[in-house]
């Protein structure tokens, strides 16, 4: 059967090595991984907002957003929360251990809708992991975008991811970073309160020339989108990323279905306008 060799099996994951890892906060770990096949490592191209399927043989496979930027090829970065079977086994891995990955999957953020516009990026909780990709992409291609606002809210200072990195970003002049926590402590140097409170710090924008991006826990979307709408940003210029259970990543297993769409192929990034047509919302 010659066809057998001819068809590349899209389910077959490729070996990748954990290059480095460290804990972001409790039960949240940062991983840098690289395809063992160097050619694959360098040619692996993706968009911010896409995800990979990561396998540990015998344990299973799960989707994870790519947190690194395609503008720095070679190494893929992930931020992983320990919640169950696969993530538990991943947390047992050490540097140089091998995992298996396939992808990239999903559509990613619509970059063409951001170029030459102001950009407002709003992250809540774990949502900052995929948004970190677009953030660095934008900073690496800074001249393509107008003003950039990065709003990030966590529940407590101890749950604030990428603290060192993001605090340093605050020193940059070409991006406005606004951070908040719901409940602060004595050492917390930034705002306190829910992320929507940060909107008052955004100067006047031209809504037609602005693209907004939001990723966070399901409950957050409604409130943040309301703020975008108050700023009069058109619904199709608001992008968000949805999470669904995923078993295949390529539109076969059905698990990520939202009505007749498959989040893994038709998403995970949708515009707010798209989601208005979904009866089962976020």
């Amino acid at each position: 059967m010659t066809l057998l060799e001819a068809i590349e099996n899209p389910f077959k994951p490729k070996a990748a090595r954990i290059v480095r890892h460290y804990d972001l906060i409790k039960d949240h770990r940062f991983f840098q991984i690289r395809h063992i096949d160097m050619k694959k490592a360098m040619s692996f191209s993706y968009n911010p907002g896409q995800f990979i399927m990561l396998s540990i043989p015998g344990v299973g496979e799960s989707p994870f957003s790519i947190s690194s930027t395609p503008s720095r090829p070679g190494i893929l970065e992930l931020g992983v929360r320990r919640v169950g079977k696969l993530t538990e086994s991943l947390f047992q891995k050490r540097d140089n251990d091998v995992v298996y990955i396939r992808g990239p999957y999903g559509n990613g953020f619509k970059l063409d809708k951001m170029v030459d516009r102001d950009l407002i990026i709003v992250a809540g909780g774990l949502g900052v992991i995929p948004l970190r990709s677009i953030l660095y992409y934008v900073l690496d291609n800074r001249d393509q975008f107008k003003r950039v606002f990065f709003l990030y809210g966590a529940r407590t200072p101890n749950e604030f991811l990428f603290k060192t990195e993001f605090f340093q970003l605050k020193n940059r002049k070409d991006i406005e970073c606004l951070y908040t926590v719901d409940k602060s402590d004595a050492e917390w140097p930034h705002a306190t309160g829910v992320v929507t409170k940060l909107f008052k710090n955004i100067p006047e924008i031209d809504p037609r020339e602005t693209t907004a991006v939001v990723v966070g826990p399901p409950v957050m979307y409604k409130f943040v989108i309301d703020e975008f709408l108050k700023l009069k940003i058109p619904k199709n210029q608001i992008q968000l990323s949805l999470e669904r259970r995923m078993k295949c990543g390529i539109g076969k297993c059905g698990h990520c279905a939202i009505e007749h769409l498959y989040t893994c192929m038709d998403g995970p990034v949708f515009t707010y306008w798209d989601t208005l047509h979904f009866r089962e919302l976020i």
């Binding site: 540990i56 015998g58 344990v59 169950g84 079977k85 538990e88 086994s89 047992q92």
Partner: peptide, 11 residues
């Protein structure tokens, strides 16, 4: 049992 042998959480 095989998952426990490998230190993995059973399904």
């Amino acid at each position: 049992i095989s998952r426990l042998i490998h230190g993995a959480i059973p399904e």
